[in-house]
């Protein structure tokens, strides 16, 4: 009963609140190579947006701008109601704790065990996002991705799919409100891809995160996306739900849905 009321309160505040991510006229160029020309995108709280686009078109650059790893040349970027460009070091770090980032290469720390990899983001948890026993929390994170037995292994002892899972567990360790996935299924065999897709869906449901997922994987896009955005020529070239886009006749887009 109390829970239900709380949920209702949460629902209503969610609806009333600002979008989780608001990108306006974002620009980024490397010398003469213009990657983002005029990119705008709004992601509502709780929404799952898939970003698709050719290799090298600037998808990774886009989400690295969102988390402040890359400084854009122009445009504005609001994440969780804060203007990224106006934050000092400390504020930016605090904001980053509320965002999980799953790297394409998994980016596990080679010199650390799985346990230490998961402990690392907890080092600066000054605001106590995680309460209670850290060991239990780490075990739960590993259980979530089905790899509790790997806790003492080194990253070099893991397969590609396992590394992805640990990467996801690490990104989610601080219970972030937003999760950014960079090609979570690229380079995996179809069965492992499907497992990772199901894992992402399960975690989305369990933790009610807002997410941006970069992928070429049609199955992942269909199952995870509330909305799909096509990045091309440095702009949000087209967007819509999966069903809208498979009926789109633009050859640039039909290309992606061909198997």
């Amino acid at each position: 009963m109390i829970n239900a009321t709380l949920d209702m309160v949460n629902e209503s505040t969610t609806i009333a609140s600002q979008p989780a991510i608001e990108i306006q006229h974002l620009k980024k160029a490397f010398g003469s190579n213009v990657v983002l020309r005029d990119f705008s995108l709004t992601v509502q709280n709780g929404e799952n947006v898939v970003v698709m686009g050719k290799s090298g078109i600037g998808k990774t650059i886009l989400i690295k701008c969102i988390i402040g790893l890359i400084k854009p040349d122009g445009g504005t970027l609001h994440v969780l109601e804060q203007d990224i460009s106006k934050l000092d070091h400390r504020k930016l770090d605090e904001l980053r704790m509320r965002i999980g980032f799953v790297f394409q290469s998994s980016a596990l720390y080679d010199s650390m065990t799985v346990r230490q990899n998961l402990e690392f983001p907890l080092r600066h948890d000054r605001h106590r996002r995680i309460t209670g026993n850290i060991e239990d929390h780490i075990r739960e994170a590993l259980r979530n991705v089905g790899l509790e037995h790997a806790i003492n292994l080194m990253p070099s002892e893991l397969s590609g799919g396992m590394r992805k899972r640990i990467g996801i567990a690490r990104a989610l360790i601080l219970n972030p409100e937003i999760v950014l996935y960079d090609e979570p299924t690229t380079g995996l065999d179809p069965i492992t891809s499907e497992e990772i897709t199901q894992l992402i869906l399960g975690l989305q449901k369990k933790y009610k995160t807002t997410s941006i997922i970069i992928t070429h994987d049609i199955d992942l896009a269909r199952e995870a996306a509330n909305r799909i955005v096509f990045l091309m020529d440095g702009i949000a070239y087209a967007q819509g739900t999966y069903d809208e886009l498979i009926h789109n006749t633009d050859p640039e887009i039909t290309h992606f849905f061909k198997r």
């Binding site: 790893l69 070091h89 770090d93 980016a107």
Partner: peptide
Amino acid sequence: VTEQIDAMEVSGTN
């Protein structure tokens, strides 16, 4: 090159 430095930065470690 394997983005581990980026990973540190996004988890709040300089």
